[in-house]
Write a protein that binds this DNA or RNA. Sequence first.
DNA 1: TTGCCATATGTCAACATTGATATAGCCGTG
DNA 2: CACGGCTATATCAATGTTGACATATGGCAA
Lengths: 196, 196
Amino acid sequence: MIPLAYALLGLLARAPGSGYDLIREMEEPVGFFWHARRSQIYPTLTRLEKQGYITHTVVEQRDRPDKKVYAITDAGRAALAAWAVEPMAIPPERDAFMLKVYSLWLADPRQAINLIRTYASQHAERLARYEEISATIERNAEAGGELQRMSSPRFISYAMLRRGIEYERGYVSWCRWMIETIERELAEHVDEVDRY
Amino acid sequence: MIPLAYALLGLLARAPGSGYDLIREMEEPVGFFWHARRSQIYPTLTRLEKQGYITHTVVEQRDRPDKKVYAITDAGRAALAAWAVEPMAIPPERDAFMLKVYSLWLADPRQAINLIRTYASQHAERLARYEEISATIERNAEAGGELQRMSSPRFISYAMLRRGIEYERGYVSWCRWMIETIERELAEHVDEVDRY
DNA sequence: TTGCCATATGTCAACATTGATATAGCCGTG
DNA sequence: CACGGCTATATCAATGTTGACATATGGCAA
């Protein structure tokens, strides 16, 4: 089974939903760490149903097209739980941005700064969004102490959000350091030119 | 062109080499951020040559099989430099480990801890390796101040290593926090059991 | 009433990537 | 001299993933 199958099982283990619902749910917070297109999600749901991990019931709707609402089965939940705790090796990294950086020494420093600044601002935006969600969760959690219980999906979502925030912060701070370093070099170069 | 093509161009822009050399070089430090198999590398080299971005000369060897040594062309260097500075959007994340975490609330806490501990130790190992390389680089750099010049491949490699270290540190610290949180919960649970 | 938007479910061809398999030269060891 | 191991290049089938295309319902606005 491909990871996407477990992503869908993970979503359905929290709440039943249609393919369309799942597509939207893939945006947050699983989507922080996994991603797939419609064209992959629908066939995967069909396959999961054939394997007996999910079932569906057609729900008729008046003001919009009917939908198939999927729910996880006991077999599905068992398979998911077993996969979740199975130790794994670190998969090969794939970071297209760092691949660009690898060849930045060939480029004009000003254009390099532009690249990094643009990318950093996107990460900063994400970071702000994650921090906002986190703040909301923390406010709501003050009443019940549910954020402590690992067996609660809410705690897991919160923990994943923390990881996302840490990741984005790290990326932003590295970008800033990189920009500062290149700018310092540019400034020195200007001095040299001015001297003559 | 696929990212792998630029990874290979990036390697050849630093030094010519055979397909076999490139496969080994893909391990460090590009490999920290990109990865491919032999079966993908050889055809990609053929394609790059057809496009005029690289050329090869057959080098005869006595004590081992002959090899094709590839070198980047001016067109290749230009294409690489242009691609490198072209701004990009953040690609969708894909972190299979965090996908497991998403469903950990279904699992036995002890098994969850085992999963996270195993993964953390792998990241800690990488971190140690990166830090060692970084220390070596910093020692060697004390003589010439080359680590300041963005237009030097060495500075770029060092900068990428810094990013790798930051990334691994972040992962390890998150894992530790996660383990501590679950362990605290387990301890509390033991107390409750003991009370009755 | 025409067209656009959101909901809803799918298919398909093209491309990226993996894992297995193949071949061959040369070295050193048993 | 047979075998394993390292160097070296390559192909192929299977699978994963994307992007484009297809289809249908119902609401709302020009």
